[in-house]
Amino acid sequence: MSTSTLNAQTRGFGLSVAITSIVSALLVLAKEANPGLVTFMKDLTVHHWVTHAIFDVIVFVAVGFLLAKSNNGQGPAIGDEKLIQIIVGGFLLGCVIIAGFYLITG
């Protein structure tokens, strides 16, 4: 996307925010549905929440670096406006999945 005014790091890590937010929310659902997963995550560190946070940071950094290096170092080939929509939408979707789930089951 030669017309983009956003640098590769912004494009890569921006998409990573959206992806990781949704993945994290889906992990919440998986933990609530599977007590064995909670136990497994608790065994990895001192608390399942700590493991969850570490997992999110690793996914965010790894996906962000990979996407930033993609497309010959230019970052994902997505229009700038679309990228903003994905970042905002992905973050909000993650929040809605989590809040909606606990609103229904809490």
């Binding site: 790091q9 890590f13 921006g14 937010s21 929310a25 969850h52 993650g94």
Partner: peptide, 18 residues
């Protein structure tokens, strides 16, 4: 759980500021 997404978004802010 929402705070984890917020943490990532806050981390992204200085990247976007470049």
């Amino acid at each position: 759980h929402v705070v984890m997404g917020l943490l990532l978004l806050a981390t992204f802010l200085p990247i976007a500021a470049t």
